[in-house]
Write a protein that binds this DNA or RNA. Structure first.
Lengths: 244, 244
DNA sequence: CGCCTATTTGATCTGATTCAAACAATGTGG
DNA sequence: CCACATTGTTTGAATCAGATCAAATAGGCG
């Protein structure tokens, strides 16, 4: 099903225009598509995957469970993301990949991706670039955990997710579907669920957002960004790669 | 000065054996070497570098300064690291790179690196792999900031640095030079300097480490790892790339 | 010696955690 | 369609890890 890879193509073409051959090579990658329920693992720590996976629909996250039983979430992934590209070059998974909502995921054999990057080095560079942006997002989350208080950290995450979702056409005006529980939010931000709840109340109380029935609406975008110290540069929506 | 690139070669060869041609290509990369004093910037946020840099000697870190004036450090880099490989694919720097100690840094034009990865795709994959390990380290730091208390976070960092330094031959038995002040440690871990000091006292008090005159000695390695919940898998010392 | 930077200690305060319980929403099977 | 179970949100109270403020002490080094 070639159209399954449309989200990926869309993402790559946002950065550099691809030649017809490059597009065709991507769209004809052999993929297997699987549907997952919420709360299931797609890949586990210590696995040695032979395929990469691409999110087509839903919400997926990378995370680790500590000895103490607590969880740290590293990233959220939405349509078009390739959350485990790293398995292409790192044999063993050092974290888990799991769904947070019902999700559709496409799998592509490593061999096929390697052949693609061999035949079309520019595509390889675009994929590399994607993993570098992942890393930039990790860094920004570090800022949130290390140097921002809870309301600012949450606000910052909302600013980020709004822009990433908008970039793949998943916002409706100033709102988007947000099927993420407060407990999960806490695991992502390094906060307790109770404190997430109170910080959300704070953001709501100041009229910056609403969050109801899993729909998040950003009411005062400028104020929210201001509060969060948000600067979208780290998402690198700008950075064109050199032309073909 | 071809021998400047020895640390890089050493690092890459730890993962995959290189052909004579590949080695030659790396060693003959045209480089400029510069010496920096401690506390100086090598690259700044918003810069658009035309070259990559490689740490030959010293201690370098990536960091960001917030509006509030606080600093968040994202990573420490030592000999053999290429802390801004990302500039190869992301036009604009989203953070700073600065020295923490007198350091020697080699610069290589992007064009030269791109030519290298074009002519020797396996080297390109090794470099990509290096940036993926960077990202794995970011994730582990997120665990530290989000889910570990201060002594465990510091202990974890020490475990990591010990192994990374040992891998490039910069340890002497169970000790290594550690020219990092407590304030800097705080900026890396998202802690106040005072609290870093108290946590260090705690580690010392329990006889796990000594830290004196910028020499860190690990007295009880197992206990320190245990305390920190340290598992070196994320450093991927194991993961061989496929053979040539 | 005197300056500057780094470490250490004390006292106080606060953001965030923990524990506990109520409440709301959603879904499921009988 | 209701009863019940389950999952998620909200609130309260007590406690604690870590921040902040302030000042003393200790090293380097020109």
């Amino acid at each position: 099903m070639p159209q399954a890879l449309k989200p990926l193509l869309r993402k790559l073409e946002a950065v550099a225009s691809l030649s017809p051959e490059e597009k065709a090579a991507i769209l004809t990658l052999p993929v297997t598509v699987r549907q997952f329920r919420a709360g299931h693992d797609v890949i586990r720590e210590n696995d040695r995957p032979t395929q990469c996976c691409l999110v087509l629909e839903g919400w997926v996250c990378r995370y680790k469970i500590l000895e103490t039983g607590t969880r740290q979430i590293f990233s959220f992934h939405i349509a078009g993301d390739i959350p485990d590209l790293q398995s292409l070059h790192l044999r063993t998974m050092d974290h888990n990949l799991g769904t947070l909502a019902p999700s559709m995921v496409a799998f592509v054999q490593h061999e096929a991706v390697k052949a693609l990057t061999r035949d079309f080095p520019r595509i390889g560079n675009l994929l590399w670039r994607d993993t570098l942006i992942d890393a930039a997002i990790f860094r920004e989350w570090m800022v949130g955990m290390g140097r921002r208080d809870a309301p600012a950290g949450i606000a910052h995450l909302f600013c980020e997710l709004y822009r990433r979702l908008r970039a793949v056409g998943l916002t409706r005006g100033d709102a988007f579907d947000f099927p993420i529980t407060q407990a999960v939010l806490g695991d992502a931000l390094g906060l307790s669920m109770v404190h997430v709840n109170r910080s959300l109340m704070d953001l709501r109380g100041r009229g910056l957002i609403t969050l109801d029935k899993h729909v998040l609406r950003i009411l005062k975008s400028e104020e929210l960004c201001e509060d969060a110290g948000f600067d979208e540069a780290y998402l690198h929506f700008d950075g064109l790669l050199e032309p073909a």
